[in-house]
Amino acid sequence: MLMIMEKRNRGSQILASILVNAIYAMVNYPIVLISTLLAPFSLLIVITFVSHGALLPIAIGGALIMTIIGAGTSLQQDLSHLKNDFKLQDMIVSSPTTARMYLAGMAASEIIYSLPALLVLAALAGLYISAPAIAFLEIVAVLAVMFVFSVSLGFLLSTFTSDVVQSWAFAGIVSTVLSALPPVYYPISYIPQPLQYLAYLSPATYAAEILQNAIGAVTFSSYSIAVDWLVIVAIAAVMAFLAIRKSKWRED
């Protein structure tokens, strides 16, 4: 009857998430724009001044990585909010769409959300990082892989939350592990030896190595860069798989 065999417009499904989680939020509360714009710059500024400018190129790269990882953390919090405080996810689950489309749309919304900060960082990178075009391509590729990783992790975690307080806890843990530990704003050699091993627990460390190598700030052997790539691609793939297959779209 009614519309059972109708075709579902996937573009619409993505658009819905972008509208609700980014466009309408920014239009109705412009203050969120300022907050997302400022977020990546606090550490960037501190590191740049403390190093008398020497670490600026690395710190710009670090801020790019952190903005991308931050997108995953925000995604987790936004999804938990919509799921637990509005029960919106229940309404969407009982609809002709899928976890995958919801994840894709919400991930896109986080990109839109981070766009102002990303654009400013990209401009800074253009100004202060002198590297061949291929290096910039490599940076974009690293960021894309890290984005897949972080939004998948955020999505997966959000489906396990039943309260916004849990979501804050997840966000706290994830940001400590993913951002406090890894040497994204400075070379890994700045970390005392035994702690370096700890840093390798975070995928952000591998991404930072690729990025620092690409801009010529720190040189790694091509073997270790290959390993770095392998690690982040594998982790992102596993996380994306888990997000699509193991997220609690229907609750237990």
Binding site: E6, K7, R8, N9, R10, S12, Q13, L15, A16, S17, L19, V20, Y24, M91, I92, S95, P96, T97, Y102
Partner: peptide
């Protein structure tokens, strides 16, 4: 947006 999520144009 709910209707978009359901796949309508």
């Amino acid at each position: 947006s709910y209707l978009l999520w359901r796949g309508f144009g």
